[in-house]
C-alpha cells in the first residue's frame, strides 16, 4: 500500500511537472458534430479540433486535446484540468465573469428546428406551452429562459441526446446552434424536420460568436491564441478548414 501511495505521489509530481513545460492542454466536448466529435477509432476531430491544431502549429506549441463533458467544461478549466477551451463556446457576459476569451473564431446564430409539418414559430407566442429541448449550460438554454419564458424547457447533457429525443417525437422543437442543426438536418433529420423561422442573432443573448476560453488573468496564453488566430485567418489556413466543412463562411466579420 505504501508503495502504491509513493507511486501515485511520484506520478502526480510527473504530471504536475509536465504541465509546467510549454505544453498546452486544450479541452473540447467531443459530442458537438461537426465542430467536435469522436470518430469510430476514438479520435477527436471536427472544426474546433482542426482550428486548435492549426493554432498550435502556428504557435509552435505542443498541444494535447482532451474530451470533457460540457457541464463541467468551465469548472474543469477553473480547476486547472487544462489551459484552454476550444469547444464552440459562445462569448457571453455571464461566461466573461468566469473566464477570459480570445476574439471570436466563428459566428453562428441560434436556430429553432421542429417537425417539418409543425407550425411552430420562433417567437415568444409561438413557443408558448411547447416542449423545447436544449443543451444544459448553453447560451441557447439562457436565451430560452429569458426571451421565451412560456416554453417548457427540457435540458440535455449533449446535443446528440437532445436530437435523439427530437427525432423520437418527445419534443416540439429544439433550439441550438444554427450550423450544428444544419449538419444534423442534412445527415440525420431528413425531410421530416426543418428550420422554423429566422435564426436568432442578437449578441445580447447569444454572445459575440465562439471564442477560445482561458483562465482569468492568463493574458499571455490569450494573446498567443489571438495572434495565431489573426495569422491563420490572413494566410488562408482558416478558409481552407472552413471550406472542408461548410460551403459557406462562418468566419467572424
Amino acid at each position: 500500500m505504501i508503495r502504491e501511495i509513493l507511486t501515485a505521489a511520484a506520478l502526480a509530481l510527473v504530471c504536475a511537472q509536465g504541465a509546467q513545460a510549454e505544453n498546452i492542454r486544450i479541452a473540447t466536448e467531443g459530442a458537438y458534430p461537426p465542430f467536435n466529435l469522436v470518430d469510430s477509432s476514438g479520435k477527436l476531430k471536427g472544426f474546433d479540433v482542426d482550428i486548435a491544431k492549426a493554432l498550435c502549429a502556428e504557435m509552435k506549441a505542443h498541444c494535447t486535446i482532451v474530451a470533457q463533458a460540457w457541464d463541467g467544461i468551465i469548472p474543469g478549466l477553473k480547476a486547472g484540468k487544462y489551459d484552454a477551451i476550444i469547444a464552440s463556446m459562445s462569448i457571453t457576459p455571464a461566461r466573461k465573469k468566469a473566464v477570459d476569451f480570445t476574439a471570436p473564431y466563428y459566428v453562428a446564430g441560434a436556430a429553432l428546428v421542429g417537425p417539418a409539418k409543425s407550425d411552430i414559430t420562433f417567437t415568444p407566442a409561438g413557443l408558448k406551452g411547447k416542449t423545447i429541448g436544449v443543451q444544459r449550460a448553453t447560451t441557447y438554454a439562457a436565451l430560452l429562459k429569458e426571451k421565451f419564458p412560456g416554453a417548457k424547457i427540457k435540458l440535455y447533457d449533449t446535443v446528440d441526446n437532445q436530437n435523439l429525443d427530437l427525432k423520437a417525437g418527445r419534443l416540439d422543437g429544439v433550439v441550438a446552434q444554427q450550423v450544428v442543426m444544419y449538419e444534423w438536418l442534412k445527415k440525420d433529420g431528413g425531410k421530416a424536420f426543418a428550420f422554423k423561422g429566422k435564426p436568432f442573432l442578437d449578441p445580447k443573448y447569444i454572445g459575440d460568436g465562439a471564442g477560445i476560453a482561458v483562465n482569468k488573468g492568463n493574458t499571455k496564453l490569450r494573446d498567443q491564441f489571438d495572434a495565431a488566430l489573426k495569422t491563420i485567418m490572413a494566410n488562408g489556413t482558416y478558409a481552407k478548414i472552413n471550406a472542408s466543412y461548410f460551403p459557406f463562411s462562418i468566419a467572424p466579420k
Partner: peptide
C-alpha cells in the same frame, strides 16, 4: 432530463461554476 435533486444540482453547478 428529469429535474430531481441531482438534476437541479447539476444545472446549478453548471450555471454558478
Amino acid at each position: 432530463t428529469l429535474m430531481d435533486i441531482t438534476g437541479v444540482a447539476q444545472t446549478l453547478a453548471a450555471d454558478t461554476y
